[in-house]
């Protein structure tokens, strides 16, 4: 039986080495979300549980079963006992599959490295797997100018097959329409959840920030993973080069060394704008580059999430 090529293997994003390192860390949601599975994630809703939190004065309409009669006996007041509830995490991984994510595909394949889409697909699969393994549910949306694949959140292991298959078939094609996608994501998630967006954000910033604000408005916890190729960060080209614009952008023939300074300055303006915009909206922003190690990125993410949970006042 002929061995299937690496690019054809739908499970190639579940690199065991990467997964083994990630599994020893707890994936914690920064906020308590609603869910069905009690366990590792604290629910933002107070309900039936074993861990007491506080008393609250009885209000008409409250469940009479939650009245603490011992307190009524001592003080002749009706107070209600509140407990911390543990729920299941509902998360969506949103992956940009536009044409700009395809930059450097040939070069990276020759070098055996990851191009942008390859990288974010790997990261998305890893995070989905981790989520599912913790009995949380995870869904997937890939998009370009429109939603191309949408997989509802599930918590079964077999669900991963659908996720990875969706990532595999979603070859980048067209231009990004981020606002439209965010609207569709928001509508697809009626309850609070975690939205993990993997994109190069080479789109209109106003639309991007509107989309993110829409998600935040529905009280989703949003994490933006901004992926850029090393070439896009460093712009290391030399010699006369014709840059052919992806996503219907114009071409440019130039000596890249002559424009490097200007390019880097414009890049800095752009990155600053995106980072500040995310911060302003309350989106957790992380800039990734294609040569970053996957485990390092995920570990950094998880540590950052835990730190946030340990200090809720930061939110």
């Amino acid at each position: 039986m002929a061995k299937k090529s690496d690019s054809d293997n739908p499970r190639r994003y579940l690199d065991p080495k990467v997964i083994a390192r990630i599994s020893q860390l707890d994936l914690r949601a920064r906020q308590v979300v609603e869910g069905f599975i009690s366990g590792m994630h604290k629910s933002p809703v107070y309900g039936q549980s074993v861990e007491f939190v506080q008393h609250r004065e009885y209000m008409p309409g409250d469940d009479l079963r939650r009245i603490d009669w011992k307190v009524w006996q001592r003080s002749d007041k009706f107070v209600i006992k509140q407990y911390e509830a543990e729920t299941n995490l509902r998360s969506y991984v949103v992956v940009d599959a536009s044409e700009s994510m395809l930059y450097g595909i040939d070069k990276h394949r020759r070098a055996g490295t990851l191009y942008k889409y390859d990288y974010v697909a790997t990261a998305a699969a890893c995070l989905a797997y981790l989520t599912v393994k913790q009995q949380d549910s995870c869904g997937l949306i890939t998009f370009d100018s429109d939603v191309r694949e949408a997989i509802p959140p599930r918590s079964s292991v077999r669900h991963m097959d659908a996720v990875t298959k969706a990532l595999h078939v979603s070859n980048p094609r067209e231009k990004t329409d981020i606002l439209k996608i965010m609207r569709q994501v928001a509508e697809a998630m009626p309850n609070r959840g975690l939205v993990l967006i993997f994109s190069d954000f080479l789109c209109d910033r106003e639309s991007l920030f509107k989309g993110l604000e829409m998600l935040r408005h529905r009280r989703h916890d949003v994490m933006a993973f901004h992926i850029l190729d090393d070439d896009e960060l460093l712009f290391p080209f030399s010699g006369m080069t014709k840059f052919e614009g992806l996503e219907a952008q114009p071409d440019l023939l130039c000596d890249p060394r002559a424009l490097r300074e200007g390019y880097l300055e414009e890049l800095e303006l752009y990155l600053t704008e995106v980072r500040r915009g995310c911060t302003r909206i309350g989106v957790d922003y992380t800039l990734l580059r294609t040569s970053d190690y996957m485990d390092a990125v995920l570990s950094k993410f998880l540590f950052q999430r835990m730190a946030t949970r340990a200090n809720p006042a930061r939110r």
Binding site: L252, E265, L267
Partner: peptide, 24 residues
């Protein structure tokens, strides 16, 4: 000669490049 002999790169971040080219 260098202007005639150039290579081609499909480039995503054309926005910055065009702005840089215009500015510089």
């Amino acid at each position: 000669i260098n202007r005639i002999r150039f290579r081609r790169i499909r480039w995503a971040a054309m926005e910055f490049l065009l702005k840089a080219q215009k500015r510089m």
